[in-house]
């Protein structure tokens, strides 16, 4: 995995999605200016918002992002298609794969079964926050333990391991196996994921 893939949002330099989206960035810039007044109006009169899209602020990886969401927009859609945070993956409709795992207010959740509007005011952490110049110990441990094959489920696993070890820093192998019950890997890399998690527990992986 290249450093660029793990860089915290917003990414610098060339971005395929941004390029393809073309002029939509300019449209976003003009809407940014008006969002503050709209947000105030919404706070004053909590009415049924209708089906149309509207601007809201989401706190993602420590930064406040202004995004345009419809009531039906899932958190995963917004992360991937507006914020270019494509680590969390749309694998299962029902969230059973765990590939869309992000941390919201300290809890791991499936971003594809969570409405973006439901996350306003909450702290959202994605896998991208664990990368960058000095990757999180979990990311390094996944590299050391070769805990991926096709890699598609990997971001979800990395976030789930991070959330689990935040809560259980001294977890045993058995606890890791039963605790990380919300992620599936069709390649069957589970043994290496457990190895990676144990490496973090033992403090054997730092950058």
């Amino acid at each position: 995995m290249k450093d660029q893939d793990l860089a915290p949002w917003p990414q610098a330099g060339f971005d395929r999605r941004a390029f393809l989206k073309g002029s939509s960035a300019a449209a976003a810039a003009t809407t940014l200016a008006t969002h503050a007044t709209q947000a105030q109006a919404q706070a004053a009169a909590p009415e049924i918002v209708g089906r149309q899209s509207r601007l809201v602020e989401l706190k993602v990886n420590g930064k406040t992002a202004s995004v345009r969401v419809e009531p039906r927009s899932t958190l995963l859609d917004v992360l991937r298609y507006q914020l270019q945070l494509t680590g969390a993956k749309p694998v299962s409709i029902d969230g059973s794969s765990g590939a869309s795992t992000v941390i919201v207010d300290g809890k791991p959740i499936a971003a594809n079964t969570t409405l973006a509007l439901d996350c306003v005011g909450k702290s959202i952490q994605t896998v991208e926050s664990l990368g960058g110049e000095k990757p999180d110990a979990v990311v390094s441990a996944f590299v050391h333990a070769d805990a991926m094959q096709c890699g598609f489920c990997t971001p979800g696993f990395v976030v789930a391991v991070r959330a689990f070890l935040d809560k259980n820093p001294g977890a045993t192998e058995e606890q890791i196996r039963s605790g990380l019950n919300g992620n599936l890997c069709r390649c069957g890399t589970y043994a290496n994921v457990v190895m990676a998690a144990l490496e973090v527990v033992k403090g054997g992986s730092r950058g």
């Binding site: 959740i109 499936a110 079964t113």
Partner: peptide
Amino acid sequence: IGGWQIQSR
């Protein structure tokens, strides 16, 4: 009920 991501919600 589901995995622990599901149980969070």
